[in-house]
Design a protein around this nucleic acid. Structure first.
Lengths: 150, 150
DNA sequence: AAAGATGTAACAATACGAGTAACAACTAGA
DNA sequence: TCTAGTTGTTACTCGTATTGTTACATCTTT
């Protein structure tokens, strides 16, 4: 399985907008935090906007979250940015004349659906608020560690 | 997310070996059912062999399952063939000087781990025996449907 | 008007899965 | 023993998806 960072970067963007809501929220500034480029940020923000997770206004560097972070879950973000909703994928090119090839697709689809449901149930329990809280907690821990070092 | 068929094809191979254990089990025959090529089948069989899910003997087209299908789960097969064990992936290239960039990696790693655990728990409950049973059930249903049609 | 930002598209670079081919080593049967 | 068929393994190519890069029309603010 190849790996994309869409979900991680989307969470990053939302958390950035929430944490730095008083600073510049230009795609360039956000891209600097993601260590990526403004176009990627804007592309992801299109998906987040279509999912009604944030609002933007052309020309103004002022994206805003439309929902409370306590009301946004990892599942919402996942569905917003991942155009392929499934974590596991059935090989849809098997020999229909074979007992295995003719029946394994539907069988695996059902099994994968159970795995998907378990994963999504867990994703639905992880709120953006919790993630932001943990980011702050880790930040304070790092600052305390830096203090102790000096 | 890009998608591979390694897991599906590996399940296919194991089910094929179990169901057609009295027929030819050459990589060419299996590849015909997967509608793939013998090299792919052999590559996957290497991983399955290293995970002690089957035994092979060079030159003989007689792979054998080493465990009872009731004792092999989707998780076993998943871990055998997927070299990247994680379904979700953290962007490990973020700006450490930013509150978000400096703390989101560890935060997401923890969250993703919970999702991974939920998915793997479900995978561990799906046995190869169950999958094979369902393949047979669907086969009988198809045969009955074909009968009714004529 | 000018500067800076977004929205969007086109293209290149990159990475990875999968297909293909080739060949040494091994097995089984004539 | 010889031969055909198979596995184990490697190298290369191809197709596809993500990401990086660039460009530019459109919008907002000063």
């Amino acid at each position: 399985m190849r790996y994309s960072h869409k979900l991680s970067d989307a969470v990053h963007i939302l958390a950035y907008i929430e944490i730095y809501h008083d600073d510049s929220l230009s795609s360039t500034a956000i891209a600097a935090s993601v260590e990526s480029n403004p176009a990627l940020v804007r592309r992801l923000m299109v998906a987040l906007r279509q999912a009604h997770l944030l609002t933007t206004q052309q020309g103004t560097s002022q994206p805003r979250l439309t929902r409370s972070p306590s009301d946004v879950t990892l599942l919402d973000i996942y569905r917003a940015v991942e155009d392929e909703p499934n974590l596991l994928h059935v090989d849809d090119k098997t020999n229909p004349l074979c007992i295995v090839g003719g029946n394994i697709q539907a069988t695996l689809r059902e099994a994968y659906q159970e795995v998907q449901h378990a994963a999504e149930t867990q994703m639905a329990q992880i709120t953006l608020e919790r993630l932001i809280t943990q980011i702050w907690t880790r930040q304070r821990q790092r600052e305390a560690a830096d203090q102790a070092e000096n």
